[in-house]
Write a protein that binds this DNA or RNA. Structure first.
Lengths: 152, 152
DNA sequence: CCCTGAAATGAATAAATATACAATCTTCAC
DNA sequence: GTGAAGATTGTATATTTATTCATTTCAGGG
């Protein structure tokens, strides 16, 4: 019986059911449920659960928000170029057979402004809401291409 | 012009294009771009922009804090049927023109097991990791169809 | 020009969160 | 059983972030 697992389960319940604004509040909430833990442990749990403090309260994000890292892992080395075709379409090139995977990763993240993607074998079309969003997304994607300068 | 607006715009650019882990890094990044600001101001900007620190880096959430209820609002009445095509693909039907919106709502929520979606005009393909996840997602989606019968 | 009020800011500091480190449990091989 | 390796934990503290408060800036009215 892992008290660690139990505690983390309760943490998820608590942040889902009441407004928890600090880790100390979480410590208190846990104690009310018979679980003793220090703020330090709660901090570690929060890291492990990849929780996020948004709008002043701790929440479990829906996927996409905190998965930036994971996304970057999934895409790095599989993205060759990023080009714009007009204001609303980005065209990404990948090695053969990689487009589906990269496009799925992109779908998982759903960056601001991206409306959708369609992937072929080595090409992905990314539809963006408006030009500014496209530029931002393009810049960020390019930063994932090895050997490309980060600041443009 | 409002240097405040400029600064916030640059903040969004910076966190999109490089990994920013602390507000002090943001202060430095701003200085490199010719914008002087204190950590205090950056902290206020972050609050105003509702940014969140996820996985150790500052990011712009893809959308606000989605609740299941909000998602259900977005989908209820716009989903006509849910069928399985094999173990890894669900096919959703919507009224004409609604598929994109429903698919976006689905992407926002990214239920466990859903790898990605592609939407046409009145049809959405939902790729799921494995059969069990597909059944679960399908069941849940069907529960959103008014007067839903069991299909597939 | 001088006021006034609202918004924005930085310095200092309070508050909140993450981590180093040592102690204590678990697991598992022997 | 004993002991080693690794996980988990709390305390104390370092680091990071939010806030207080005094000051500055700027627009508009006189």
């Amino acid at each position: 019986m892992s008290s660690l697992e139990d505690r983390r389960r309760v943490i998820l319940e608590e942040i889902a059911n009441r407004r928890i604004e600090t880790q100390e509040q979480l410590v208190t909430a846990l104690r009310e449920r018979g679980i003793e833990a220090s703020q330090a442990s709660v901090s570690r749990d929060i890291t492990a659960l990849r929780l996020v403090k948004a709008d002043g309260r701790w929440t479990a994000p829906t996927r996409g928000l905190p998965t930036t890292n994971r996304f970057e892992e999934r895409i790095t080395g599989r993205l060759l170029s990023v080009d714009a075709a007009g204001d609303h379409l980005l065209v990404l090139r990948t090695p053969p057979g990689e487009a589906q995977g990269v496009a799925l990763a992109l779908d998982d993240l759903s960056p601001e402004g991206v409306v959708g993607t369609i992937a072929g074998d080595d090409t992905i079309f990314v539809a963006v809401i408006e030009a500014a969003a496209g530029l931002e997304v393009a810049g960020w994607l390019r930063s994932l291409i090895p050997g490309s300068g980060v600041r443009g």
